[in-house]
Simulated assay, not measured.
Amino acid sequence: MNFQRPRPDDPEINLIPLIDVLLVILIFLMITTTYSKYTELKINLPTADAPKARPYTHEVVVGVAADGTYAVNGRILPTRSVNDIVTALAQAAKGNANTMVVISADAQSTQQSVINVMEAARLAGLSQLTFATQRSSGS
C-alpha cells in the first residue's frame, strides 16, 4: 500500500486573463486621459545676454507700451491702427528700404501689439526687424 499523497503538478499561472484585464485597463486610461491646454502654461521668457548689436546706419525705433500705445522714434501716435503705424514708419524711413526697424516692446504688452508693428513694417516695405532687449539682472 502506498500511503503517500500524490504530488500535484507544478502550479502554472495562466497569463491570458491577466493580459485581458491589463488591456481593458489600458483602454480605459487612454479614453479618460485629459490633456492640458497650452494656454494654461505659465511661461517665463528668457532674457538676452548677447553682446550689443552693431549700430545701424539708419534705424527706426518703435516703442510699444503695456497699454498698446505706439511711439515711432519717440513720437507717440494718436491712434493704434496699423495704417497709422505704416504712415509713421514710412515717414521715419524716408524711402530707405534698408532701414532697420527696432521693436522695443514692454514685457507686459500684448503679442497683438507687436504683431501689428511687424505687419506695419511689412506694409511699409521695411523687411529688416530686430527686437530690443535688456540684460538679465544676473550679468
Rank of each mutant, 00 (worst) to 15 (best):
I25W: 14
I25A: 15
I25G: 03
L26F: 13
L26D: 02
L26N: 05
L26M: 14
L26Y: 13
I27K: 09
I27G: 11
F28S: 13
F28I: 15
F28H: 01
L29W: 12
M30K: 11
M30P: 03
M30F: 15
I31A: 13
I31Y: 11
T32V: 15
T33N: 11
T33Q: 04
T34R: 14
Y35A: 10
Y35L: 15
S36T: 06
S36H: 11
S36A: 13
S36K: 10
K37H: 15
K37V: 04
K37N: 14
K37T: 10
Y38Q: 06
Y38M: 10
T39C: 02
T39H: 01
T39N: 12
E40K: 04
E40I: 04
E40C: 06
E40P: 04
L41V: 09
L41M: 12
L41K: 09
L41C: 02
K42Y: 05
K42N: 07
I43Q: 05
N44A: 15
N44C: 06
L45D: 08
P46S: 00
P46D: 02
T47W: 08
T47L: 13
T47Q: 15
T47S: 11
T47P: 07
T47G: 15
A48Y: 12
D49V: 03
D49C: 11
D49Q: 14
A50I: 11
A50T: 13
P51D: 15
K52I: 13
K52V: 14
K52Y: 03
A53W: 01
A53R: 11
R54T: 15
P55N: 12
P55D: 14
P55I: 10
P55W: 01
Y56S: 14
Y56V: 06
Y56K: 12
Y56C: 01
T57G: 12
T57E: 10
H58A: 03
E59W: 13
E59H: 07
E59K: 14
V60Q: 01
V61R: 10
V62M: 00
V62E: 00
V62C: 01
G63H: 09
G63F: 01
G63P: 00
V64W: 03
A65K: 04
A65T: 00
A66D: 12
A66T: 10
A66K: 09
A66R: 11
D67H: 10
D67T: 04
D67E: 14
D67P: 06
G68N: 09
T69W: 04
T69F: 02
T69G: 03
Y70C: 04
Y70H: 02
Y70L: 05
Y70N: 04
A71C: 08
A71E: 05
A71D: 05
A71R: 00
A71S: 12
V72N: 00
N73Y: 12
N73H: 10
N73E: 08
N73I: 07
N73Q: 14
G74T: 03
G74Y: 01
G74I: 09
G74K: 09
R75F: 09
R75A: 09
I76N: 11
L77Y: 00
L77T: 05
P78C: 03
T79L: 08
T79N: 13
R80I: 09
S81I: 02
S81D: 08
S81Y: 04
S81K: 12
S81E: 11
S81P: 03
V82L: 08
V82W: 07
N83S: 14
N83V: 13
